[in-house]
């Protein structure tokens, strides 16, 4: 018993703030939402148990559910790699010592600070309008662009561009990761006359792997849960013609606009299973490409 305590005590002492928060603040609401997913609940009266029928409706009758999955998956597949590649590239440029680097960093982080404010909604609409900046630029090459946000075929891409443009947070994390790589490693590589791409694949990539892994996981989870930016640009309901019907937008409307919190909870747990499966897969795959310093010996 004493041995057990000695082995576990420090771990649980350090874990205790999280554990207390999880057990007393987070777990209850999570379990309640699971329970609600088996009920009809309009938030004014009491929930009414309906078993699996919410899930059944979702998978067999609800066309908008499938539409929202399609929109969300398309977005995840396009936005996550683009944003990460962009963030890594800029982080590597900004990592090396050049003058006034702090200013660039602040500038590049700026769009992310603006987040999903009302200002961004207005700005984005103006930029991608029929006579906006983007089309003015395209017309220099003789291309007449559409009204990007109003066209259901193109509206999703404006959100992908927005995601790329707000690459600040993964960039900053990459930057912090790059800082952890000792410059001596690169110097040694220079002595060995290793080319820049080779240095990237032999040093940067393996040593940055834990951080890359973190960014992939988190960015993907965030992309699956995209809400604020889609909400402000789609007028809150996925317009035009459901082309911006992200999963969480659908869920939010079902819950707070149409008084179907039970159904919204079922949607949430379906999303949770999807994201969970993806994350578990990534963790499993990471054994083959992510190695940590503290596992080496």
């Amino acid at each position: 018993m004493r041995k057990f305590l000695a082995k576990n005590a420090p771990g649980y002492v350090f874990l205790s703030p999280w554990l207390i928060g999880f057990l007393f603040l987070a777990l209850g609401p999570i379990l309640v939402s699971l329970y609600l997913s088996f009920t009809k609940y309009d938030m004014i009266g009491d929930p009414r148990w309906v078993g699996l029928s919410q899930y059944e409706y979702m998978f067999t009758k609800d066309k908008r559910f499938w539409k929202s999955l399609q929109v969300t998956f398309t977005y995840v597949i396009l936005a996550v790699p683009a944003r990460l590649a962009f963030a890594l590239m800029i982080a590597m440029v900004l990592d090396k010592g050049i003058r006034a680097i702090g200013i660039y960093r602040a500038l590049y982080y700026l769009p992310s600070i603006l987040g999903a404010s009302i200002a961004i909604a207005i700005l984005w609409r103006q930029i991608f309008n029929i006579d906006g900046v983007v089309n003015a630029f395209l017309s220099m090459f003789g291309i007449q662009g559409p009204n990007w946000i109003a066209n259901p075929d193109t509206s999703l891409y404006t959100l992908v561009v927005l995601a790329m443009w707000q690459f600040g947070s993964p960039m900053l994390i990459f930057l912090a990761g790059l800082r952890g790589i000792s410059p001596e490693l690169y110097e040694a590589a220079e002595i060995d006359a290793a080319s820049k791409p080779r240095q990237f694949f032999a040093i940067t990539l393996p040593l940055l792997a834990p951080v890359i892994f973190f960014n992939i996981i988190l960015q993907t989870i965030e992309a699956f849960k995209t809400f604020s930016s889609a909400f402000i640009i789609s007028n809150g309901d996925g317009s035009p013609a459901d082309s911006l019907l992200f999963f969480t937008i659908y869920l939010f409307n079902e819950a707070f606009k149409f008084f179907r919190m039970g159904y919204a909870s079922a949607l949430a747990w379906t999303l949770l299973v999807i994201i969970g499966a993806f994350t578990a897969l990534s963790f499993f795959a990471s054994k083959y490409w992510v190695h940590y310093e503290n596992e080496k010996d």
Binding site: P10, S33, F227, F247, I275
Partner: peptide, 30 residues
């Protein structure tokens, strides 16, 4: 605790912690 200490059930708690990241906030709001 998760990164440097060994204690029983650590993987289990870690998985639960990751789960809290995945749940859409709007359904736990109420």
């Amino acid at each position: 605790a998760f990164a440097r200490l060994t204690f029983s059930w650590s993987k289990f708690w870690f998985a639960l912690m990751m789960m809290t990241l995945m749940i859409p906030y709007h359904v736990v709001l109420i």
